[in-house]
Amino acid sequence: MFEARLAQGSIFAKVIEGLRELVTEATWECSGNGITLQAMDSSHVALVSLVLRSDGFETYRCDRNMSLGISLTSMSKVLKMMGKDDTLTIRVNDDSDAIVLSMESQNQEEFAEYELRLMDLDSEHLGIPDTDYSCVVKMPSTKFSRICRDMAILGDSVTICSTKDGVKFGAKGDVGQGSIRLNQSTNVDKEEDAVSIELREAVALTFAVRYLNMFCKAAPLSNQVNLSMSEDTPLMCEFKVGDMGHIRFYLAPKIED
């Protein structure tokens, strides 16, 4: 049997909203350590890796490792029925072909239960090596979302150039071109508003902005986003999920034809 309970069910809903545009269905790997998921988008240029550690749940029980094929599209629809302060319990009974989502209101006066049929999915798994990136930009996730949305107006690609002083996002297309430059924060009251850059080597990489915009669907999970970059290496775009885990998106850079 598998059972995991989250007092703040909305966190789980935000995780699903963060994933579902990039991947519509995925295999959840459940073990005693927690829940992990790795999935690629259909064009194989982007990858998402999710980790939710068992100690981040109020209660967590996993008697044996399970691989659960789940439609994220359907799960998202079910989670929309959840109240914003509801507690969420996810359960898979032994020998069952369904996942049960139970939602309980904070005053314990309302209790809802939904079942979703599990799917048989072919899953591919890519080995992602631990990488020492040349540059890690940390910035407010809302600012990153806004920049990606704005850049998409100008073109299909965004070039991210990072030096020790700042980071510049630029795009050009048929209508024109533009760029936004953020300087490293020197003095901020709130850490979540800061832009900080750890740099070993300056980088300039170009990415499809459409994918960056899909990654930004996970921005509500975290005040800050980490962008880890090295030349000729996929970007790693990371949003923390509280202190229980993270969503990491990987995107292959574009190269000149």
Partner: peptide, 14 residues
């Protein structure tokens, strides 16, 4: 023109 490479170019299947 810019080509979008696939991730398999960088990471191996396990």
């Amino acid at each position: 023109n810019q080509f979008q490479l696939e991730l398999q170019t960088y990471y191996t299947h396990t």
